[in-house]
Design a protein around this nucleic acid. Sequence first.
DNA 1: CCTCGAAGGACCC
DNA 2: GTCCAGGGTCCTTCGAGC
Length: 897
Amino acid sequence: MASNEEFDFLSDEENFENDWKFDENDDISTYINSSTTPLSADTNKEVVNLGKAMTIVAENNSNERKVSRMDLNTTKAGMDGLDKDKINQIILEASKGSKFYENEKKREKQVQKRIEELQRKMASFTNEQKVKAKQAADKIVQELEQGRDLSRTIVHVDMDAYYAAVEMRDDPSLKSKPMAVGGSAMLCTSNYLARRYGVRAGMPGFIAKKLCPNLTIVRTNFDKYTKISHEIREVLAEYDRNFLPMSLDEAYLDITDYLRGNEGQNKRMGEVKEEESKDIEGKHDTGKIAGVKFESTDTQENVCAETKENDKTKTENAKDAKFIVRVKQETKLVEVKQETSKIEALPNHDFEVTKQVKVERAFDDDVTKYKQNEKDSEGTHRPNRTEAQETKGDIELEPIPLKAETAKHELDENSFNQQKGEGMITVGQSEAQGESDWDFGHGSSENDTSFLHEEPAVAEQEMFYNKVEEVVKEMRRKIEVKTQLTASAGIAPNMFLAKVCSDKNKPNGQFYLKPERDKIMDFVRELPLRKAFGIGRVSEQILTSVLKANTCSELYDRRHLMQLLFTPNACTNYLEISLGLGSTVVDVDRERKSMSTETTFKEINKPEEHLAKCHELCQELSESLKAHRLTARKIGIKLKTINFEVKTRVVTASFPVQQTEELFSHAKKLLVNEIRSSSPEPLRLRLMGVRAAELCEKGMVNESKQPTIISLMKKNGSVRERSISLNASQAAESSKACGPEQEVSLEHGSMSREDEVRHSEICSDLTVLDDHPSTSKEYTNDHVPSDQLGCHNFHGNAKTERSSNQAVSREEPTTFNCPVCGRDLTFRSGNALLQMNRHVDTCLSKQAVPGVLKYDSGQQTNKAKQSSKKRKRESSKNTNRTVKRKPMDRFVTKHTK
DNA sequence: CCTCGAAGGACCC
DNA sequence: GTCCAGGGTCCTTCGAGC
């Protein structure tokens, strides 16, 4: 436990005074918190003599510094203890003189310039300014602190070296070799053996080869990764149906509801599929067995019983219990009930007592390999292992977490609420904190936490923590059983922390940061800033060289300066990071904002080639748009010259487009402009891209990586929401619920923009006005199957879409031409006529529409949207600030008063 | 003075 | 011999228009 002196953010008068000193003396050493070491050499301008690799090719300019932006980023997993200098030297040698390198140098200079400006600015601050700034910062801190929400249990699941792991799984000979997945231009990922050489994702293959001449590079196989990703997601969905996939190998889950014991509980039981078990047998070649079969549970029952009586007995018996499991050397892997309840964890988590046992189903074959978590909980150190080591199988057994059938210790609502904590002060915390400023916001009657000091509450809390760990372990095991790939997980009260935690015990480990404020602050204290989401190369450089802050605590100590130097947005974000705050809402309802395609090639410099390439890209993009049923109002191009300079140009179309030629006509203009403006020099490109933005959905749920909001109708830049947001599964459900008769197809074929807008409004009107009980909310055209859209085959006034024999039992889709708005509307319903009439009425009562729309787009929609979100969980205290931490830029305010 | 759109970047995986 | 991706999101700056 850190003493307050060591980690005293708020009573940092000394630090604060040091700032003044810094101003007067420019004495960096007094400014830097002596307890921390610089992360990188350029933390301190004076420290430059770090070997050749660090001194840059100075050419003419003696002021030139090293291009630190090209350095290896070793903050990621599996990169500890590398000879960074040597690696950086090799990278430098391989890059020197290239166009890319020159460009990096240029960008580095720009960053330097910014840093110098900031430093100048900082030197000009008066004490008065700083005092004021500190007050302002503290005020924000206080608000943020008040919004701190520790009630959610967020899990970040991250597959270990995913692509590489997949390739190794399918070709075990790769396991013993350093290998990477990608191409010679760029690597996507590398295995842990390769990482020992400094080979990592985002590195060009040829440099990786220099670092590790034996490196095997395997081509990417995205289809395969996607398929496996689906399998992983099936597991994740058991724990949180609304989990948020971030990429193929990474996702956030909110398992709070699951922990309450009611979500997904009975979904999977007894349905372990044959093929699953076969898969497992088939693939396991090394044959080391670590699975365990639980039989009688008498012993364990006893252990649990005794646990409550006597601590000593608890420990010993628990040990025994573990031994029993191990000694037996049973070899059957069992699938157990979803909900694992670890009843007691022992000090240091050396072992666990798992209480009973309801075997739902055993795999057909008794022999199943099961890899062991090397480390299961925080506090104990686990050495890094390579894949080669991991497959050796010299591992300890660990009982598979089992479900506690006798739920005597099920957390009751009461204890849960305590855990969840209004104001969340946990045992021992108030003492530890003393009268520190940290306590702000916790002073009133509602913060009477005396009840938490009672033993039962502590025990229950412990139980809860154990349960959390077990659940996540179980999840990871399921993933492994299913895919033979390991995942790491971070568990924390918010997404930011969960992310950091998942990295902590990689590979194949997990880390639980318990929802206690002082634990979080401890955790965050020495956290390198670079680990924080949204702090990349540049921000890190700025923060270290301007603020001399390497860790979150140091950042916090400079909050007054942040206040003066950065934009309010950036400032708040930094404060959130330094306080360990992050989003507690795993928000899947994110809508895709743009869609693009780009490609790198050998130099292209002839206009006709430019245009040909552009057309190609437009075609690709058009296909993507069509596949997602999207149209775009903005079309942009991206050009990268052979010197790596990037230009983007955007144009707003007068109506939403989707077709290749439509896209091309806009993109072409932009491109030609650039060709012209570069002339008489040829436009020498190495990359071209086309982008579509301001997307409008043409119906259907967007099948992008995240389930999306349906139907955002945009007009004049302002968003007016029409229909209730549904995620994909909800949409599917409601679609089922409504039945096909509620689906409406609309003719989109050749609409003008005006038509499109009008059309949207009409759809919306239907949404709003329809009073059909089952459709009052979901009645949009969003569920129309793809083949119903476009309606290219509708010509008549009322034409059936299917052959009549097919349509006998189902209602025939019928197309009408609306005499008012002129649109073709298809209704698949027995009462199509009625619906049509309703539509016509709507069109006719145009005057009523604005009012409706207005109302709808006002509070109504917001409310509806909120309630439609399955989990509106912002506690009443939760101010708007903390909830969503957005990635941000750390730009600098132009004028800080 | 405020709002918007375009351009440029930073960052993430 | 190979010589730094591609698909996104969000933020800031800055000039134009109201």
